[in-house]
Design a protein around this nucleic acid. Structure first.
Length: 278
DNA sequence: AAAAGTCCCAACCGCACCACC
DNA sequence: CGGTGGTGCGGTTGGGACTTT
């Protein structure tokens, strides 16, 4: 079924990218922008398929990618968002500025999944580390979900949720979420053709200011609109559950934001103290 | 020092969805 | 309305790096 894999074309390079290939790709995208991946390799002088070029750019070469170790705060956020969203790595990545879905997926599979397996097999006698308010509330009513997620690690199930129609091909660059900056207007296209509920609209306005949307990815926004919009829900229970999940995700993101701010404040305090000591 | 085992992650693959004709 | 090409996503894998024996 389906067409042959694009990378099977004779003469195309596969495997690791060379520095020269990286340079060619970067130079081309810098001067022509992203998109049109299928024709990009030829125009850029690369013997790669478009898919490979896109992947290399998205996961490795983009200037806004944050490389390096996942911080404990990010780790915590990944775990909590995964409990809500499942293996929807692109959505989770959308909440972690500068991280790619591939990186988070790898991190989950190599670190967190292993850790959860160990936790699952070990006794629960070990005193748990202090948990945030949000986690406590979440765990109180989501123990069943946790079991499902642990199960999903060993039994890889493919999750295909229906996706709403895209209205804009433009995607915003990955940036900090909920940072209160007012200049997002210029970057954020008009994503929505559906209406927000009053609560969500208020939340949106509280966070970004009037007229700004929540989320850096089109799909991100759509997914949350979709699960929240009662008109799209099959029944009242589903709608209530969806609304509850959205609310929980908001709490998680807010806590994460507060953690970051606290760290920044702490850093500023430390630097201030250091300056006094010099 | 070297062979064997394990870990990690960049890259590939297959599939689904959308836009366009 | 169906076919086709483009794009994006999640699952999987190959091989280099690292650790253990």
């Amino acid at each position: 079924m389906g067409r042959a894999p694009c990378c099977s074309k004779v003469g195309l390079h596969r495997g690791s990218w060379t520095a020269r290939e990286d340079t060619l790709l970067i130079q081309y995208i810098q001067s022509h922008g992203e998109g049109h991946w299928s024709s990009l390799p030829k125009k850029a002088g690369l013997l790669r398929c478009g898919k490979s070029c896109r992947l290399r750019w998205m996961n490795y070469l983009r200037p806004d990618i944050k490389r390096g170790n996942i911080t404990p705060e990010e780790d915590d956020l990944i775990v909590r968002l995964h409990a809500l969203l499942g293996n929807r790595w692109s959505l989770i990545a959308g909440r972690l500025p500068g991280r790619t879905d591939n990186e988070i997926k790898n991190y989950w599979n190599t670190h967190i999944a292993k850790r959860l397996r160990i936790q699952k097999t070990s006794t629960q006698e070990v005193a748990p580390k202090p948990k945030s308010k949000c986690v406590q509330a979440e765990e109180a009513k989501k123990s069943d979900d946790d079991q499902e997620n642990i199960g999903a690690i060993t039994k890889r199930t493919k999750l295909h949720l229906p996706k709403p129609t895209r209205v804009s091909p433009v995607k915003t660059p990955v940036g900090s979420f909920c940072d209160g900056e007012g200049d997002h207007d210029a970057e954020v296209p008009n994503y929505f053709h559906v209406s927000w509920s009053d609560d969500m609209k208020k939340k949106d306005d509280d966070c970004f200011g009037e007229g700004l949307v929540w989320g850096e990815n089109v799909e991100d926004c759509y997914d949350f609109v979709q699960v929240f919009d009662p008109a799209r829900s099959q029944n009242s229970e589903e709608a209530a559950a969806a609304a509850e999940r959205v609310a929980m995700t908001w709490k998680i993101c807010e806590e994460y934001e507060q953690d970051i701010k606290a760290d920044q404040d702490h850093g500023q305090l430390e630097s201030f103290v250091d300056s006094l000591l010099i």
